[in-house]
Design a protein around this nucleic acid. Structure first.
Lengths: 199, 199
DNA sequence: GTCTATATAAGGATAGAC
DNA sequence: GTCTATCCTTATATAGAC
């Protein structure tokens, strides 16, 4: 099935916004990638910002749904619960590597290109994770670490791998998004955090 | 002493590039912050890119010098050596938080705004760190982890805190760059990595 | 060194033909 | 739905007065 113009625009826009950012992407860039002219884009979307909003908010909502599902799926406590959620998030990032780069740009920009503040949207998730760690540490299933700091460390360690793919490609001299490289990254992450957390 | 125009331009440019990126910053933004007009900037620098190059390359060189010094300063092995270098890097980031954001934007962009590739410049440092971890793990002073992955995890965990300051400010509801917050972050980082690395 | 005025290009967005 | 042509704004950069 041939993708509709609208879908093709969103795909190419996501690629461009991930690679070059909002300001670094022109409607011409997107149009050229799709094989259309600039005004044709604005037949499908009201503005450049509307395209960006669609790209970003759709993926962000998918991400939150995926994480919530992983939290709900698994009723155990301690490491196996955390492992399950972390693995689900990692797999989402694997399938949506471009989104991680867009999200990182939002986190970096302070004043985003949309009305929504990423921090406000993700704070509920963050607070629940803090509660989880407090609980596990209190029950003695994890070693004592500051829960907020744990989450900063964990999310940064996962997201940094995906967001800085161009950089890591240069440093490692291989494709960080190959199947093997991704499996190695996830393995390491799980082992490293288990080593630091398990009593 | 009143800073020269040139110095004032570089300061304001660093602030803008960190906050809004290269494409998101106009010469008018910088000029307004300094209290000059656009053409006056181009009396001191050949182009917008020349301003950016000065801001970025100066800080990057300072960073490399600081890390090399920390590596040389301390002749011990194992955790105390790593701790010394990590703390030195963290202190550099504390004093140069804006630079971390600029560096992250470079890592994110793939094709930077300069001829220099950040990955190529930092690869020697990376390779030496790999050698260090191989050595320490081989000697049994650290638990077994993949050295490359360790460095990705460590640098991402430190840099993510500084680069995403606007995001963390929203999530944590406090200033991530306050003296207390920075001390807590460094403490956590050191303890967490010690917990994961020490046998 | 700093300014005003201006050249030149690129970007987002609209009008209207097909 | 897609196009060409065009409007308007902003951006980098230069020329030349003070």
């Amino acid at each position: 099935m041939v993708p509709s113009s609208r879908e093709a625009i969103l795909l190419e826009a996501r690629r461009c916004f991930a690679e070059q950012g909002f300001d670094g992407t022109s409607l011409n860039d997107i149009a050229a990638g799709v094989g259309l002219r600039k005004p044709s884009l604005l037949h499908h979307f009201a503005s450049k910002e509307a395209i960006y909003r669609d790209v970003f908010e759709t993926s962000l909502a998918d991400f939150i749904v995926r994480v919530e599902a992983a939290v709900a799926e698994q009723d155990q406590a301690g490491w196996s619960k955390l492992d399950h959620v972390v693995t689900a998030a990692f797999e989402f990032f694997t399938d949506n590597a471009e989104f991680v780069r867009i999200m990182r740009r939002e986190a970096l920009d302070g004043q985003g290109h949309l009305g929504v503040d990423l921090g406000t949207v993700l704070k509920p998730l963050f607070d629940r994770a803090v509660g989880f760690f407090e609980n596990e540490i209190g029950a003695g299933r994890f070693r004592k670490h500051d829960p907020e700091q744990l989450i900063i460390t964990g999310t940064s360690a996962i997201m940094g791998y995906f967001s800085d793919v161009p950089f890591w490609r240069g440093v490692l001299d291989r494709d960080p998004l190959s199947e093997d490289a991704l499996a190695a990254r996830l393995d390491h992450f799980r082992e490293f955090f288990r080593a630091a957390l398990e009593p």
